[in-house]
């Protein structure tokens, strides 16, 4: 914001001349960086392969059609497993994330020197490792199967749920908490009456949103042996049974659409 005085008259421009030049130099720099990167990627690409990509894609598509619907009968069980992995994993995450969120929120943490950093570290650690990698590790620890998948989804989701929940806790109206405190309520009662009602909509929203994400994530856990429909997907790709792959993809898509519908309904109900 710049006020310019010229011949005793005041005028206003959004930026001073110096700021204007700096902004333009920034845009120029970004454009140059983009072009340099473009050239680098282009040099490392074998264009011959890219050029026939449309033919390759059409070929794959033709091999996937028509879907092998008879395979569907064998998919219900793994699909059910997948949904169970997502649901139980989300439940596990919510149960563990709630106390962590209270420890991580500035206004509710019992101790901001020790407890809060530990809680924040748990959140970061959980978020920085992909569920597929959690599953890979857990399969070696727990052995292959659904349990590894549930724990992997749970560990991965703790960070997400706890982070969003602690942000919701930090945004509550402190006056409502003050009012409950003033009645002589204990800390636990202040939490139950002053804080929990305020974060309930956020809590419900976060839970179903994460469940919705977990349905998608758990479809690939089978790739590393952690149960669910990913196992069949992996096997079908390995055997080049593309008509089966297309059935699996279609069934995954319909499950995801269904889960999005449910989570939208739940979020609506909890406002």
């Amino acid at each position: 914001m710049a006020v310019i005085t010229k011949d005793g008259k005041r005028s206003w421009r959004r930026r001073s001349l110096r700021n204007q030049l700096a902004v333009q130099a920034g845009w120029l720099g970004a454009a140059v960086a983009f072009l340099v990167c473009w050239r680098f990627i282009s040099e490392k690409t074998i264009w011959m392969f890219v050029l026939d990509a449309p033919q390759q894609a059409a070929d794959l598509a033709s091999r996937m059609a028509p879907p092998d619907w008879s395979y569907l009968a064998k998919l219900w069980k793994p699909l059910w497993d997948t949904i169970n992995i997502a649901t139980l994993g989300t439940l596990l995450a919510i149960v563990l994330a709630a106390p962590i969120a209270f420890c991580a929120a500035r206004n509710t943490t019992p101790n901001s020197l020790l407890v809060r950093p530990v809680a924040l570290f748990i959140i970061v650690a959980s978020r920085s490792i992909n569920s597929l990698i959690w599953a890979l590790m857990l399969v070696t620890i727990l052995g292959p199967g659904i349990l590894a998948g549930i724990v992997a989804i749970g560990l991965r989701s703790i960070g997400f749920c706890a982070k969003l929940l602690y942000e919701a806790i930090e945004e509550i109206d402190p006056r409502q908490v003050e009012a409950v405190t003033a009645t002589g309520a204990s800390t636990a009662q202040v939490t139950a009456f002053g804080i929990v009602p305020q974060i309930m909509p956020a809590f419900a929203g976060i839970s179903v949103f994460r469940w919705d994400i977990n349905i998608r994530e758990s479809t690939v856990l089978g790739l590393v042996g952690a149960g669910g429909i990913g196992l069949q997907l992996n096997a079908s790709i390995m055997n080049l049974a593309w008509t089966r792959v297309s059935v699996i993809l279609l069934i995954i898509i319909s499950t995801v659409v269904f889960s999005e519908w449910i989570s939208a309904r739940v979020r609506q109900a909890f406002i």
Partner: peptide, 11 residues
């Protein structure tokens, strides 16, 4: 105690 802006637990 009675508050400005009521400070009821809204939900």
């Amino acid at each position: 105690m009675i508050f400005q802006e009521y400070a009821l637990v809204e939900r």
